[in-house]
């Protein structure tokens, strides 16, 4: 289950890029001490809010689902690099909760008068979240593994890929992004992927979240989370 969390900052928000993430400290959960890195779904500068999509999967995210409006959270933000706003006709590909940052990314493209295409992959229609919202900023296509909505199958078999796009920007499970990267290479399309590795510090100090790249092991939190797919050693 996914839910939206509105994080209202006490201080005016700085300029936040699409693809960056926040690191949330969830206090008083039995014996879990590290922060939870979560990608930024949207930014509301008028209300001074960062909005994230949280998937309830463990102790910390369950605790987050139970907090009340007005409760205080300790959040470090914004962290990481961002998606490049490249291409006249970008295809944004999201898998599961990895779709979340593609909303803010679409809005950034909209600012440049580009309406991107979003391809969303999920196991079933029950796992799809906020589709109407995405439709407001992009042309939405869906793949579900059981065929309950959109085309049946994986995102990599969706017929929309047969259209000519200028770039693929993707966030989701690593096997999906790898498949997209291979597809991009075949078609000669620029491809950027947003990696989600286990992190401790989120600021490039601990070197735990590294991914193997052509330049060696690089921190996903500072050199990423967004990488050119060609630089990743899958």
């Amino acid at each position: 289950m996914c839910f939206l969390l509105h994080l209202k900052s006490e201080e005016p928000l700085c300029n936040i890029q699409a693809g960056q993430f926040v690191n949330i400290l969830v206090k008083d959960i039995a014996d879990r001490i590290l922060r939870r890195p979560i990608s930024i779904h949207d930014v509301d500068y008028t209300n001074n809010e960062i909005i994230v999509v949280v998937q309830k999967i463990g102790k910390a995210t369950t605790k987050l689902s139970l907090i009340n409006e007005g409760d205080k959270l300790d959040v470090v933000f914004p962290l990481g690099n961002s998606f490049p706003l490249i291409g006249e006709k970008p295809l944004l590909i999201g898998g599961g909760v990895g779709t979340a940052p593609l909303y803010y990314l679409s809005k950034k493209f909209n600012e440049n008068n580009i309406r991107p295409t979003i391809l969303i992959g999920a196991k079933t229609k029950d796992q799809l979240f906020l589709i109407d919202k995405y439709s407001a900023v992009a042309d939405v296509y869906i793949s579900t593994e059981d065929g309950s909505v959109g085309e049946k199958g994986m995102v990599t078999t969706n017929s929309i890929l047969n259209q000519q796009f200028t770039s693929y920007l993707t966030c989701g499970p690593a096997p999906m992004m790898k498949a997209i990267a291979i597809e991009a290479q075949k078609r000669g399309v620029d491809c950027y992927v947003s990696m989600e590795n286990r992190m401790a510090c989120g600021i490039g100090a601990c070197l735990c979240c590294v991914t193997a790249t052509t330049k060696g092991n690089e921190c996903v939190c500072t050199a990423g989370p967004v990488f050119n797919a060609n630089d990743i050693k899958w």
């Binding site: 014996d31 879990r32 001490i33 590290l34 590795n197 286990r198 992190m199 401790a200 601990c206 070197l207 735990c208 979240c209 590294v210 991914t211 193997a212 060696g216 092991n217």
Partner: peptide
Amino acid sequence: EGNAYPRLAETPSGMIN
């Protein structure tokens, strides 16, 4: 270059790196 990923596991009141 260090070790391969994953390098971190969160454990009760701590972490293994």
